[in-house]
């Protein structure tokens, strides 16, 4: 028996909106720790890891570890039917091949349930070792989304270079070139507006903008994004989900031909 009640149901709606275009089908894993997912895009280039800790749910019952295969497009369609203020409860009986999403309006005057068929998904689970990152960049998530969107109208790839002066995002394409430099800025009124660079070592890496743009669909989940960079290993683009966990995207840097 599985029953997870999430008062802030909009979080789950935002999670699905942020990954449904990157990943088609995925197994959601439910254990005492929480509700999690790890999945690759269909071309096995990018990886997404989600954790919603059990403590973040108002009610969390998971009698045994369970893995539920879902088509994320279909799940997103169902969650779109929940209001932004609705409480969302996920329910599944042992051995059932369906999951039920229950949506309750905040005033309890409307209750809806949507039942979705589960799928058998043969997915690999990858081990992600702890890594030491050369540079960790924390910036407003909307700013990062803006830069990725702007640069993708000029070029296909972005070079992210971190030095003690700041972080530079550069691209080039047929029509020209573009550079955006963000300096460390911690003297802001609100901490979520700060740009912080934790930089033991300078680093410069090239990434496909198509994927970074896809990751920025998680922007509504968090005011800030944390970008961890190290040469020759995948970048981690992390959006913290308040009080509950995170969504992390992994993408390997491109290699010069």
């Amino acid at each position: 028996m599985l029953e997870l009640r999430l008062v802030q149901g909009s979080l789950l709606k935002k999670v699905l909106e942020s990954i449904k275009d990157l990943v088609n089908d995925a197994n959601f894993d439910c254990s005492a720790t929480g509700f999690s997912l790890q999945a690759m895009d269909s071309s096995h280039v990018a990886l997404v890891a989600l954790l919603l800790r059990s403590e973040g749910f108002e009610h969390y019952r998971c009698d045994r570890n369970i893995s539920m295969g879902m088509n994320l497009g279909n799940m997103a369609k169902m969650l779109k039917c929940a209001g932004n203020d609705d409480i969302i409860t996920l329910k599944a009986d042992d051995g059932s091949d369906t999951v039920t999403f229950m949506f309750e309006s905040p005033t309890q005057d409307k209750i809806a349930d949507f039942e979705m068929r589960l799928m058998d998904i043969d997915s690999e689970h990858l081990g992600i070792p702890e890594a030491e990152y050369h540079a960790i960049l924390i910036m407003p998530s909307a700013e990062f989304a803006r830069i990725c969107k702007d640069l993708s109208s000029i070029g296909d790839t972005v070079v992210i270079s971190v030095t003690k002066e700041g972080v530079k995002f550069s691209t080039r394409g047929d029509i020209g070139t573009a550079n955006v430099v963000c300096r460390q800025n911690t003297t802001v009124d609100k901490p979520e507006e700060a740009t912080v660079i934790e930089m033991p070592e300078p680093v410069s890496l090239t990434f496909a903008l198509r994927y970074l743009n896809s990751f920025t669909k998680a922007t509504p989940l968090s005011n800030t994004v944390t970008i961890s960079l190290s040469s020759e290993i995948p970048v981690v683009v992390e959006y913290k989900i308040a009080e509950m966990g995170y969504i992390r995207f992994y993408l390997a840097p491109k290699i010069e031909e």
Binding site: H125, L126, K254, I255
Partner: peptide, 14 residues
């Protein structure tokens, strides 16, 4: 520009 490696080149099945 450049070659895009798969994420599976970096992380192994666990």
């Amino acid at each position: 520009r450049g070659v895009q490696p798969s994420i599976t080149n970096f992380y192994r099945s666990s």
